[in-house]
């Protein structure tokens, strides 16, 4: 997925679509320093990963905006669909969305960072979500989370270096009867114990 999004910089710079040009050039625009200043140190590191959008990707985003009549009131729906398309919402993508809907990048960034569903870091190929709802918590979800963190050596909201796994917490998937619950992609694992973490991860060993 990541390779699909990451494209050659020079190529994208040279090929300019007249349509995107009209509304300012999303491809070459840099993230405003002001937006970066408010990041925490950890977030700053993550946003250093510079990506450039290919022409057709930018075009795709503008198409999504257009399908919602470029209505700023549809910002959240646009972001949902854009994230569905790209897997995450890096700064460059947010800039194009802002142009499409005619709002400031800051406003888009404000919405993206407000809602936990939106992410600015790509998730792993096998995103691991640990339910930390109350029911799972009292049945030991915290210990399971610790074990995943230890096994993969990453924190919550991070992705392993090889892009294989990422860890996320979510609040209640409603399978409280199976608590504690862990989701890997769409697959649900119920009654997970710290001891079974290794077994779960082993299922995703590349053959």
């Amino acid at each position: 997925m990541i390779s699909k999004i990451l494209t050659d910089t020079a190529q994208t710079r040279s090929a300019k679509n007249p349509e995107t040009k009209k509304s300012g050039d999303p491809v070459t625009q840099e993230l405003k320093p002001a937006a970066i200043n408010s990041f925490s140190a950890a977030e700053k590191d993550k946003t250093k990963v510079k990506i450039k959008l290919s022409e057709d990707k930018a075009h795709k985003i503008l198409e999504i905006c257009a399908s919602y009549n470029n209505d700023p009131g549809e910002l959240i729906n646009v972001l949902h669909e854009t994230q569905g398309e790209f897997g995450y919402l890096p700064a460059e993508v947010q800039e194009v969305v802002a142009q499409g809907l005619g709002v400031s990048t800051a406003q888009v960034y404000g919405v993206v960072t407000f809602y936990s569903y939106f992410t600015m870091i790509p998730k792993g190929r096998f995103p691991i979500s640990i339910c930390t709802g109350t029911a799972c918590y009292v049945r030991g979800a915290e210990k399971v989370l610790e074990e995943f963190k230890r096994e993969l050596n990453i924190g919550v909201g991070e992705t392993t270096e090889d892009g294989k796994f990422s860890i996320n917490c979510l609040r209640c998937v409603g399978a409280c009867g199976l608590a504690p619950v862990v989701l890997v992609g769409e697959k649900v694992y119920g009654r997970v114990s710290p001891e079974s973490v290794k077994t779960i991860l082993a299922n995703y060993e590349e053959k």
């Binding site: 959240i76 729906n77 949902h80 407000f114 809602y115 936990s116 569903y117 939106f118 609040r171």
Partner: peptide, 8 residues
């Protein structure tokens, strides 16, 4: 429909 995005 309008979708929430994970904010309690």
């Amino acid at each position: 429909l309008r979708y929430g995005a994970g904010a309690f």
